[in-house]
Design a protein around this nucleic acid. Structure first.
Lengths: 203, 203
DNA sequence: GTCTATATGCGGATAGAC
DNA sequence: GTCTATCCGCATATAGAC
């Protein structure tokens, strides 16, 4: 009986492997923040070895930069998809597109996290650029007024907060999630709740 | 000539020293996030040794928890201070109270950072509790309607984002800070800009 | 294309002196 | 009340085999 070789990742084109790792990285970075994430966790989530992650992306920072860049792109892609239709209703459709992205693990949290990292030279640059793209899209393509744009983005940031705080249940004397969510997004309560992990749970 | 003793922190009552360290910690945590901050940086910012910080607060996590708890308290204190006066104008006064807190280094960023850490068992608990206090204050003491409350908090989160992104200048092809700030808070532009560090600058 | 082994540096925390 | 010395664990990154 020969010694079985340790299960190793199946060979695959580097481009596909990159894609796979980027998805895993989005989920992990989203759950644990940029600094809180180790390249090893990303590697395990993607089913490859830690050095290979570094090998493919150079550094953890470069990996994160690709992740947030992709996330901002994805966001715009989803917004653009709901452009056709009644302009009166566009804000609502875009809001739905935003919360729908909760199913793509890490996508929203990663964007949220990036907005806290403006102080990092490289990451900050990319984060500001991503935010700019969103802003321009909303103004130019969606045709929002400054006031509408401000309102829309502010609401998105509030959703990020609810997600980040894991405001999904009732925590004793703390404010009830239902109360905040009800006040904020009466029609999205169930969706948001069902897509959030419980507090303390991994995502 | 006797050998000079290494400059050492002057003796001081532990309570005062705690306070001093908490202020330094707020600034550092605010600038570099919870995970990104080392207890050594906090110590140096406070002018004491690293082990002493740990000695006084037990762990880095406990220190951070005290920091955000204090920050949420401070926030409410400032809001409460502007309660008296024309109710029509209360929202604006509270908004001003919020942005005025930018002068207290780290205060706002630390609160923002805490909202991303709901996944951490201990920190998440405290962060949700802090957010709850704010929410209840706005509803019960300030008497905001659910819609007003939602609007007010969402705007606060947007301000946090602008601060976190360091959206303070013109970055080439990126969106101009003036454009976003103008659209968001026409009357606070100068204050916010003047209180933010430039991108890449320490805070 | 992917792994194992490993160097290296850093951060949190402890022990104990003054 | 505060410091110095230091241990230990962990995370990133490199070298090099298969």
């Amino acid at each position: 009986m020969t010694v079985e070789s340790v299960p190793t990742a199946p060979r695959m084109k580097a481009a596909d492997r990159r894609e796979l790792i980027l998805e895993a990285a989005t989920a992990v970075f989203g759950a644990k923040t940029y600094v809180g994430t180790t390249t090893d966790e990303v590697a395990r989530a993607a089913g490859v070895s830690q050095p290979y992650v570094v090998r493919l992306f150079g550094t953890k920072e470069k990996l994160f930069i690709e992740v947030i860049d992709r996330a901002y792109d994805r966001l715009i892609e989803e917004f653009r998809a709901v452009l056709p239709g009644d302009p009166e209703d566009l804000g609502r459709r875009m809001g739905t597109a935003y919360t729908d992205l909760l199913v793509e693990r890490g996508m929203l949290p990663v964007v949220a996290n990036s907005t806290a990292l403006g102080g990092e030279p490289e990451i900050g640059r990319v984060a500001r650029a991503g935010f700019s793209r969103i802003w321009r899209f909303i103004r130019d393509e969606a045709g929002f007024s400054p006031e509408q744009a401000r309102e829309f983005i502010a609401t998105g940031m509030l959703i990020n907060t609810i997600v980040g705080l894991r405001l999904t249940g009732d925590y004793g004397d703390e404010v009830s999630a239902t109360e905040v969510l009800d006040a904020c997004f009466p029609d999205a309560v169930e969706k948001v709740r069902s897509l959030l992990p419980a507090a303390g749970e991994p995502w």
